Simulated scan of single mutants.
Amino acid sequence: MDAIELLLTRQSTPRLTSPAPNERELKIILDAAIRVPDHGALAPWEFIIATGKGLDTLADIYVYAAKASGGDEDFIHKAKGMPMRAPMVITVVAKTQQHPKVPVLEQQIAAGCATMAMQQAAFALGLGAVWRTGDFAFDANVNAALGLAPEDQIVGFLYVGTPAVAAPIKLQKDGSQYARYL
């Protein structure tokens, strides 16, 4: 698949199954992440990878956070199953720092770009991925359980695996409808 085809056909793959990326594929995915624009070479990101028992740990963290926020039994049950929607979940964290030329927002955007690059790399490898956020991306209990500092921001949970079904390619839209000239 060439780069333009990848950019024009990339899509989220919400129904994922095993296998997860193998070691070589995961290295490619992570290497793609750190090639994104990074003003000041700050590397303002961390990738927390959960597979196997790590998914159980992530589920326990979600359940703890759901209970701590007063979630009802349905939400707590849903929280326990969330990490099991894929054989790998990569939590992408913006690890920002004060810098005279690189604002915090720019660093968070760089971490977001890293997430997109990982999703595209997975897609190019024939894998599937979906970028999710939700309440747990903004939950202080989740941050603490993952060992993050209060100023760290989860920018997404990238669910990665093998597509469970062949998803049809979405119709290509005309990007110029969202553009204007000055």
Rank of each mutant, 00 (worst) to 15 (best):
M1L: 14
D2E: 15
A3G: 13
L6P: 01
L6H: 07
L8A: 10
T13A: 04
P14V: 02
L16E: 02
L16I: 08
T17E: 09
P19H: 07
P19S: 06
P21E: 01
E23T: 09
L26T: 06
K27F: 15
L30M: 13
D31G: 02
R35F: 02
D38C: 08
W45S: 08
W45Q: 04
W45M: 11
E46M: 13
F47N: 00
F47Q: 04
I48C: 05
I49M: 10
A50F: 14
T51C: 07
K53M: 04
G54N: 02
D56T: 12
T57S: 12
A59P: 02
Y62L: 05
Y64E: 12
Y64R: 14
A66Q: 01
D74E: 15
A79W: 01
K80A: 12
K80R: 15
M82P: 00
P83M: 03
P83Q: 00
A86H: 07
P87D: 01
T91F: 01
V92A: 08
A94K: 07
A94F: 03
T96S: 08
P100W: 11
K101Q: 08
V102L: 07
P103I: 05
P103Y: 09
Q107A: 09
Q107V: 03
Q108Y: 04
I109D: 03
A114L: 09
T115P: 03
T115L: 13
T115G: 10
M116V: 12
M118V: 11
M118P: 11
M118D: 04
Q119D: 13
A121T: 07
A121I: 06
A124G: 05
G126P: 02
A129V: 05
V130T: 14
R132W: 03
G134R: 09
D135W: 15
A137R: 06
A137N: 04
A137Y: 06
F138Q: 12
D139K: 08
A144L: 13
A145H: 04
A145L: 09
A145E: 08
G147V: 08
L148I: 07
L148Q: 02
P150C: 10
P150G: 07
E151F: 00
E151N: 08
E151G: 03
D152G: 02
D152S: 01
T162H: 04
P163L: 01
A164L: 09
I169A: 11
L171Y: 01
L171N: 11
D174G: 03
S176N: 11
A179E: 12
